[in-house]
Write a protein that binds this DNA or RNA. Structure first.
Lengths: 116, 116
DNA sequence: GGGATTCCCATAGTCATTCGAGGGGAGGAC
DNA sequence: GTCCTCCCCTCGAATGACTATGGGAATCCC
């Protein structure tokens, strides 16, 4: 996952992609291509999801039992693999969100200090 | 860098340690041991900085010209390497902080959606 | 003095995640 | 039939974090 605008920003925050995928699937099942688009749009185009990150992530999440998949047909009449959140995935999303909030709060404590 | 409490939380947010070190050194030069303690304390003990992450990070930052180091003697009368921010390090801190804020804002946009 | 403890630096090996760069198949438009 | 878009996938390299381990030197306690 990269930060867009400026494009040279570089990669950041390894580990958050899984959480974003899980969060996206709360709205219902979707296939990879759509998931990436939803993340990009919901972030107001601040994020871009590379295919080389996306598909390994989906397979990883399925291996861990957090997603289940099923082949189907997309809105554009293409063969597509639809993923949905499992119960364990829902739990993991909640745990990951908690970790994220504690982590960002801690980091913001450090960034937020006045330079006195 | 790990999230403490719960201890099994695992590693998160690769890439932020450098920013935290740079931020800590805005207050003045410090050696590794102190830097780690300051990060832990300022984060209200939410973060713990492992030595195996800390020292490679310091070397990396110095290699990139963002820190400069000098051997000295610590408050406890121990030999210690003191690091200070360079001008380029100050610029990098500012850039990294901007990336961090844009990234967290983007992710919070996704997390923040209501489940309708 | 001598042993344990604290302070301080450092590296090797391993692991997970991401990225860029590829490859491929199949539908729809023309 | 050609091109474009959609959709899936994989490999190799890079990065940065962790665990484990090492060592040296000052201090504390008996």
């Amino acid at each position: 996952m990269v930060l867009k605008r400026p494009p040279e920003a570089g990669d950041v925050l390894q580990g958050t992609l899984d959480m974003l995928i899980l969060r996206t699937l709360i709205m219902g099942a979707a296939h990879g291509h759509t998931i990436a688009q939803m993340i990009e749009q919901t972030s107001e185009n601040a994020l871009e999801v590379e295919q080389g990150s996306l598909y390994p992530a989906l397979h990883r999440l399925e291996d861990r039992g957090w997603l289940a998949s099923e082949w189907g047909v997309s809105d554009n009449n293409r063969k597509a693999k639809f993923y949905r959140l499992t119960a364990r995935g829902r739990k993991e999303l909640s745990a990951a969100t908690g970790r994220w909030r504690r982590m960002t709060r801690a980091i913001d404590l450090i960034l937020g200090q006045e330079t006195e």
